[in-house]
């Protein structure tokens, strides 16, 4: 039986602070990070093969930056992510406010419709949209990718903004109105600034999800509308060029920096 020594704060004892738990924790973090670290290390390897270290080189990174197809794919990805995040943020914020502030008959339906794109597996959504575009004779291209990404991003933005609205202190709006602000002024000067962290959070989430999406994009992208994940996929499929190691390492480092930055920003706002 484990007894905690006086002075230590109460904690969940039965699995306790046992050494095994610590070993398990460290091993799990190793499991999560080792593959990533290996990928980054070997992106600087002279040899084409992972596992045989033949010396340090930046040649794969140089090849990567010289590769125009990758540059074009990155440009497409950024266009799609920016456009879909922007549209989804505007629409998602509006529908979130509508759902949180009004009671109406279709509310449960809109609510369910907003949840579905999050729940449904990517591959099913991809198939649905492909069939829809094919049958309505909309030719596939960047636009179809943007439409598809907005369709899932609205839900995520609405989710994040609604979470913020749920903790909203309505007395602040009432105070503004007591001070003779009209409704528009109240919205612009009080509601919107207070919602901003949620809106920015939603926009960042939408941007990241769009940038990362592979399966849905894979189905609805037309010829020539190659995004970065599509490029990465075909490079992986076509075989071993260490350029893909360099590209993966770069994508990895960029997303880690982005996550850390947004977490730090979020903590600062709270504190």
């Amino acid at each position: 039986m484990s007894r905690r020594s006086p002075g230590t704060p109460p904690s969940v004892q039965p699995l306790g602070r046992s050494r095994w738990l610590t070993v398990h924790g460290v091993m799990t973090y190793l499991f999560l990070y080792l593959p990533i670290v290996i990928l980054v290390i070997f992106s600087f390897n002279v040899s084409r093969y992972v596992g045989v270290w033949r010396g340090f080189t930046l040649q794969w990174y140089r090849a990567l930056f010289a590769n125009e197809a990758i540059g074009a794919a990155l440009r497409n990805s950024l266009i799609v992510a920016a456009a879909s995040a922007f549209i989804a943020t505007v629409l998602g914020t509006m529908v979130a406010i509508g759902l949180e502030r009004y009671r109406f008959r279709l509310r449960a339906f809109v609510d369910a419709l907003l949840y579905l794109p999050i729940i449904i597996p990517d591959i099913a959504m991809a198939v649905m949209l492909l069939l829809f575009f094919v049958l309505s004779r909309i030719s596939l291209g960047l636009w179809t990718i943007i439409i598809a990404h907005v369709a899932f991003n609205i839900s995520y933005v609405a989710l994040v903004v609604r979470a913020r609205l749920a903790y909203f202190d309505v007395s602040l709006e009432e105070a503004a109105q007591d001070l003779y602000a009209d409704e528009w002024q109240t919205f612009r000067r009080v509601t919107l600034p207070l919602l901003m962290p949620g809106i920015i959070g939603g926009a960042l989430l939408a941007f990241t999800l769009s940038l990362d999406d592979f399966v849905i994009t894979f189905f609805v992208a037309g010829p020539g509308a190659t995004t970065l994940p599509l490029r990465v996929y075909s490079m992986i499929k076509l075989g071993v060029t260490p350029e893909i190691n360099a590209l993966s390492a770069l994508m990895l480092v960029i997303s880690i920096v982005l996550v850390l930055a947004s977490t730090l920003l979020a903590e600062r706002r709270v504190g």
């Binding site: 593959p35 990241t208 592979f214 994940p229 893909i244 993966s248 994508m251 880690i256 982005l258």
Partner: peptide
Amino acid sequence: PFWTNFLVRTYA
């Protein structure tokens, strides 16, 4: 690691 691209993580 969860926020890094799924393809990249699988490729690792």
